[in-house]
């Protein structure tokens, strides 16, 4: 049986990759994909901890977080479609009217 530490380390690596992607990508959709990657890293950590503690609460929490991610995607893609359907690209740099 693989120890919990390895799963947490993997979750940490996935989380960091997601964070780097969020900071370097310029397309709104790809930034959002990176947020999803980070959420999944958190879920993996929770599932691994759930096994370490022998507690199903954390697995139920992952179920809730999955729902939460789905709701966030509904709103997020709604905003992205509403905003970018009249613009040529989803590059966030085209949105730059607010300065100061």
């Amino acid at each position: 049986m693989v120890e919990t530490q390895y799963y947490i380390a993997l979750a940490a690596i996935l989380f960091s990759i997601g964070a780097v992607g969020f900071l370097t990508r310029r397309s709104a959709i790809q930034m959002f994909l990176c947020v999803e990657l980070m959420l999944n890293a958190a879920n993996l950590a929770l599932v691994a901890f759930s096994r370490a503690w022998g507690d199903l609460l954390a697995q139920s929490a992952v179920f809730i977080i999955l729902t939460l991610a789905a709701a966030e995607v509904a709103i997020g893609l709604g905003i992205i479609v509403a905003i970018f359907k009249k613009r040529p690209t989803t590059n966030v740099d085209v949105l730059s009217s607010l300065k100061g």
Binding site: E3, S50, A52, G54, D55
Partner: peptide, 11 residues
């Protein structure tokens, strides 16, 4: 915090 085998069984 717990023995992995017993914790896993509880799941």
């Amino acid at each position: 915090p717990k023995n992995l085998e017993t914790a896993t069984a509880a799941l």
